[in-house]
Every structure is written in structure tokens, then in C-alpha cells.
Design a protein around this nucleic acid. Structure first.
Length: 490
DNA sequence: AGCCTTTGACCAGCG
DNA sequence: TCGCTGGTCAAAGGC
């Protein structure tokens, strides 16, 4: 409850006076990111020694963050080379609310070569030092806005809306080549994208349907576009995490959601090779450990996976679905009176190819336990922050959050919490996936490409209001750092 | 003992 | 009505 209030207050406090795409850019870049020449993101790996300018910002960041030991980000010596908004910046405000915000070294804007010939002249490149992973970005509080987003099944865009907003902002969400869980353990880029995938997975789990087909081809990884939001809920945009290039760099493209589609900024993030090493790999949750230990054994895969979104699931059936080369497992939420179900398709190797949530939890997310391997590591997952803990009310349990989506008939639909049935699906198409399997379930999905992430959402009225209590209770299995962070918070 | 998965059977919707 | 298909049930067994 307290977390919810904090968050609400925080979001409200984010509101800026002059929302604009450029403002979003500056806000996002200057406040949300910072570069740290010393990449202590992973327990101080790859210490390169902080540059003077970053040392300065180190102090600022630490001052802002207050209790540096309270969050993993603070451990990583986030720093920034400049701050455009020294008063009441988002970072400070978020920090005050319990978040630590990665900062981007905007001073290095323009120092990088343009990675794409199609880049806008105004689009500088930012280099994020090794150690700043997309995980960090995705864990940035900018993704708080996800709790207010609903995907469009036809356009693949997320629509943000609040009851007090003039109108929803739309942003594309696309992805290609999402790795499945075990692959996430094996490759840095996969690891980096895992929180994103789970962010969406968990987020959409709050609706009734989610489809997350994964890839089983570890050599393929492309881009993911996720929504971002500046201090003003109306200021939205997308952060696209591109594939890792030959220099082990992820390319990011931050674009404001505005009429000016060219208002974007691209930057790179160098993924340290150490990410590849198991010694530097972040610890995985129990489930992943289980999957890793018993990789290839379907039974083990089936046991741990369903709980990854933070809830406890009981498998009640499995069936080979026609059109899909992988068996589909059926899970129910083990919580009493909770009718949420979940369908999971996994390849023989244990790669998740599709996850479909049905229903919404009418109960708080259960506390992490060894069996489920759930680690409520992400700020969204933190009961103290998002209010989804056992202490009671959910973040979106109030009726203030309005969901805007498109239903199966491409008809804009505003949902204010009276929807009784929601279905949200997220497709992460895989080269190995049977396209018919996913498209059949969400025929309205506008597939961006054969290897794009598709998101659809349909809502109707069948569930009672309580079922919406858990809408937006984003759980993010930020294994590793989150595990440590959560324990520290506790 | 309790909870879970497994798995074959059953049921309902649809063409 | 029939067959197909997806979803669910429930007994059995494991942990």
C-alpha cells in the first residue's frame, strides 16, 4: 500500500510542464541513464577506473540515492556526466521513492560513430560503458509506465492511458529473436533481454492472455522495442534494444512517441565479454537453476517454469496441440479462488515457445519461496514499491488506471476496470516456432515480421472486479542482481 | 501429509 | 451427427 502510494506520488511528480518528444529525450537520457566507466554492475567486474567526470557524478548519484546499499544499481557506481535537470530530476525523485536510476553518460553523445546510415543527423550516439546492460535499462523506473500500458493486438503498439489523460499514447512494441529461458542463461544478450521478456510476460500476465513464444536458436537475437516514459506520463517513447553487433555492443534507439518520428536518439551499449563467463553471470533463480541443471528434461522444465512470474502454478494437464510441434502444458494458479490459468508451450529442449495467461490474479503475489524460485527482485516486483506484496492492495487495484487497448475487432476499447475477462498475448515469434500456432490464437495480431514480437490484447467482461486487483502487478524475474537486491531490501 | 506432475480419459465447441 | 481439436478432470505416482 505504501509502495503504491509512493509510486503514484512519484508518477504524479514526474509530470513535466512542457511535454515534448525532445523533452522526453532529454529527460530520459539525462535522468534515467548514466554511464559508469567502472562497470561494477556485476559485482564490480571490469573495473576500468572511473573517469573524473564520472567520479563527480558518482558522488551526485550516491547523494541522490541516499542509501547506496539498498539497491543493486547503487552498487554499480552509476554515474552521469551531466544532468540537465538539477532540480527535482527524475532520478532524484525516483531515488527518493526507493528507486535507483541508471544514468547515461550523455557527455559522450556524439563521440561514437554513427552505427547506422539511416540515422538522423540529430541523433547522437551514446556509449554506455561495459557493464550497463539492457537489464539495467529495463529495470529503470521508466518502465513503471508499463503498468499503464496495454498492447494493441493489431498494431503491436502499447497504449498508455490514464483516466486523467487527454488520450493514450501509442508506441510500437516489437521484437525479434527472443531467446528462451535456458538460452538466456547462456548468452549475454539473452541475459540482457531476459528482464525485458519477463517484464512483458509478467505485465501481460496481469491480463488474461499472454503468449511469449521464444526462440530456440541461440545464434539469433535481434531487437526489442519497449515503451519508456519520462516524468510526464504523456511523454512516452520507445527504447529499442538492438542486436549485439560484432563489437559486442548493443545498439539502442530511444525514440519519443510524437508526431516527429525522427526525434530519436541512438546509442550503443558495449556488452562485456565477461558476461559470457559463468563466473560473471548473475545468479539465476531456482527455476533457472533447475532448468539448467536438468536442461533437456521436459519434466524439470515444466516444474519450474510456471512460477516464474511470481505466482504459484499447478500443472493440470498437458497436451500436444495440433499445429504446434511442442506440447502445451496447462497450469492453474494454486491460490485459492484464483482462476488464473496459464498455458505454456516448451520445446523439447525446454525453450519456452509460448505462454498464454488467462485470467487475472485476485490475490497478491505470493512471497518468494524456494519451490517456486520466484524472486521479486524488480522494483515493480517489490511489494514495497508496487504494492503487489502480501500487504494488500495491488498497484492497479484502484480504478484510476484505465487500460486502452484494441480488441479483436480492431475497435478501440477503453477499459476502466470493469472488464470481466481480459486476454493478453505476447508473441515472440521464433524461427523455430510454428507460425500457425501463434497466429491461430491471435489471428488479429499484426505480425511485424516473421521474427517480430507481437502483442495482442483482448478484453471482455467476464471477471469480477477483484480479478483486476492484480492488473499491472508486474513481476520481473531479474535474476541475479535482483535476488541480491531483494534480499537487501528485505 | 501435502503438493505437485503425469497422463489417459472425458467434455465441449466448432466445422 | 460426426470427427477433430483444445481444454479439463482425476487417478496414480513422485518428491
Amino acid at each position: 500500500m505504501a509502495g503504491m502510494n509512493d509510486k503514484d506520488a512519484m508518477i504524479e511528480d514526474w509530470t513535466l510542464s512542457n511535454p515534448s518528444p525532445r523533452t522526453l529525450m532529454s529527460t530520459f537520457l539525462s535522468e534515467e541513464f548514466g554511464s559508469r566507466s567502472s562497470s561494477g554492475f556485476l559485482a564490480g567486474k571490469e573495473n576500468e577506473g572511473p573517469a573524473p567526470e564520472t567520479e563527480k557524478m558518482d558522488k551526485v548519484t550516491k547523494e541522490e540515492e541516499g542509501d547506496a546499499s539498498n539497491d543493486f544499481l547503487s552498487e554499480s557506481n552509476w554515474s552521469g556526466a551531466h544532468k540537465s535537470n538539477s532540480h527535482g530530476g527524475l532520478a532524484e525523485r525516483i531515488s527518493a521513492s526507493g528507486f535507483n536510476v541508471p544514468k547515461l553518460n550523455t557527455a559522450r553523445i556524439g563521440q561514437e560513430k554513427m552505427a547506422s546510415s539511416s540515422s538522423d543527423v540529430r541523433s547522437p550516439y551514446l556509449t554506455i560503458p561495459p557493464g550497463l546492460s539492457p537489464t539495467s535499462l529495463l529495470e529503470s523506473p521508466v518502465f513503471l509506465s508499463n503498468s499503464m500500458a496495454q498492447p494493441s493486438p493489431t498494431t503491436g503498439k502499447l497504449h498508455f492511458a490514464q483516466n486523467n489523460n487527454a488520450g493514450p499514447a501509442s508506441m510500437p512494441i516489437s521484437s525479434s529473436h527472443i531467446k528462451s529461458n535456458d538460452l538466456l542463461e547462456d548468452a549475454p544478450e539473452a541475459f540482457a533481454f531476459k528482464p525485458l521478456l519477463e517484464l512483458h510476460s509478467s505485465f501481460y500476465s496481469s491480463s488474461e492472455r499472454m503468449v511469449v513464444p521464444g526462440l530456440s536458436q541461440p545464434q539469433t537475437l535481434s531487437s526489442i522495442t519497449v515503451p519508456v516514459q519520462s516524468g510526464n506520463p504523456k511523454e512516452t517513447g520507445t527504447l529499442e534494444a538492438g542486436p549485439m553487433n560484432s563489437q559486442n555492443q548493443h545498439e539502442f534507439n530511444l525514440q519519443a512517441d510524437s508526431k516527429d518520428a525522427t526525434d530519436s536518439i541512438m546509442f550503443k551499449h558495449s556488452m562485456p565479454n565477461s558476461f559470457m563467463g559463468s563466473d560473471h553471470a548473475l545468479p539465476l533463480d531456482d527455476e533457472q537453476d533447475g532448468d539448467r541443471d536438468l536442461k533437456g528434461e521436459p519434466s524439470s522444465v515444466a516444474v519450474g517454469a510456471p512460477a516464474k512470474d511470481g505466482y504459484n502454478w499447478r500443472k493440470y494437464g498437458q497436451k500436444q496441440v495440433k499445429g504446434s510441434e511442442y506440447p502445451r502444458s496447462y497450469y492453474k494458479c494454486t491460490h485459492p479462488n484464483c482462476q488464473v490459468k496459464k498455458k505454456v508451450e516448451r520445446s523439447l529442449e525446454g525453450h519456452i515457445t509460448e505462454i498464454i495467461y488467462k485470467g487475472t490474479h485476485n490475490h497478491p503475489m505470493p512471497p518468494p519461496n524456494r519451490r517456486s524460485g520466484v524472486l521479486l527482485s524488480h522494483p515493480f516486483n517489490d511489494p514495497e514499491i508496487d504494492g503487489s506484496g502480501q500487504t494488500g492492495s495491488q498497484m492497479n487495484s484502484d480504478s484510476k488506471t484505465m487500460w486502452t487497448t484494441r480488441n479483436m475487432g480492431n475497435e478501440e476499447q477503453d477499459w476502466q476496470g470493469d472488464g470481466l475477462e481480459t486476454t493478453t498475448s505476447t508473441h515472440v515469434a521464433a524461427e523455430c516456432c510454428d507460425p500457425s500456432a501463434t497466429t491461430k490464437q491471435t489471428p488479429d495480431i499484426a505480425r511485424l515480421s516473421s521474427d517480430a514480437i507481437d502483442v495482442s490484447s483482448t478484453m471482455s467482461n467476464e471477471e469480477d472486479e477483484d480479478d483486476r486487483a492484480t492488473h499491472g502487478s508486474v513481476s520481473l524475474g531479474c535474476d541475479g542482481e535482483g535476488d541480491e537486491t531483494e534480499s537487501k531490501r528485505m
